[in-house]
Design a protein around this nucleic acid. Structure first.
Length: 184
DNA sequence: AAGCCGATCTTCT
DNA sequence: GAAGATCGGCTTG
């Protein structure tokens, strides 16, 4: 999907009081209407409600008892589609991310990790990523087509064959599963 | 380097 | 009752 590909290189910025933490998006994954792997597939629930909101909103969910993940809603209101942000290359506020993560490496190289590093949880579900001043998207360095790897999605059991995962080829900050998975 | 396990919330069967 | 858009630690090879 176009939005997932075009988010590569953009920045995700988190402001916590006086502190700024940000990173360049290096890995995304698209979840579209009619997609059996999408949280929206079985209709609207209290958890996925914001996925059906207007484009640019954040959909933040909690899973596996311990991990949050952020998505960017990208279809008109009522449709139910989003792009999962899977990995960031840390830029501003790496020290704060390390504090939040309790480690110095792999600060944002995974969908759950980046939420921990940026202190994103369900309280940020539904914020407008194009207007908020606590969590928002900003322009970054565009990524050339020659650097983009488009491959099957990871971490799901249904519709695995759809090539809707996008990554900056060879980037050192890709998610663990992207690294063990062939990234061609 | 790769694979299993536990943690433990939300939804679905 | 089980599986899931995961992570980190431990075990095995």
């Amino acid at each position: 999907m176009a939005v997932a590909r075009n988010l590569l290189g953009a920045r995700l910025v988190r402001v916590i009081g006086e502190e700024r933490r940000s990173g360049r998006i290096v890995e995304t994954e698209a979840y579209r209407p009619g997609d059996p792997a999408s949280h929206a597939f079985r209709g609207e629930t209290s958890r996925n409600r914001s996925m059906f909101g207007r484009p640019g909103l954040a959909y933040v969910y909690f899973t596996y008892g311990s991990c949050h993940c952020v998505n960017v809603v990208c279809e008109p209101e009522g449709v139910g589609a989003a792009v999962l942000i899977r990995a960031l290359a840390p830029e501003e506020g790496a020290a704060g991310m390390a504090r939040a993560r309790g480690r110095e490496s792999d600060l944002a190289s995974g969908p759950g990790r980046l939420c921990q590093a940026l202190e994103i949880d369900r309280r940020l579900d539904g914020v407008d990523l194009l207007a908020s001043d606590v969590l928002y998207l900003a322009a970054g360095d565009p990524v050339r087509d020659s650097q983009v790897a488009s491959t099957p999605r990871i971490g799901i059991s249904r519709a695995r064959d759809l090539p809707w995962r996008f990554a900056v080829a060879g980037d050192p900050h890709l998610s663990r599963r992207a690294r063990s998975h062939a990234t061609a």
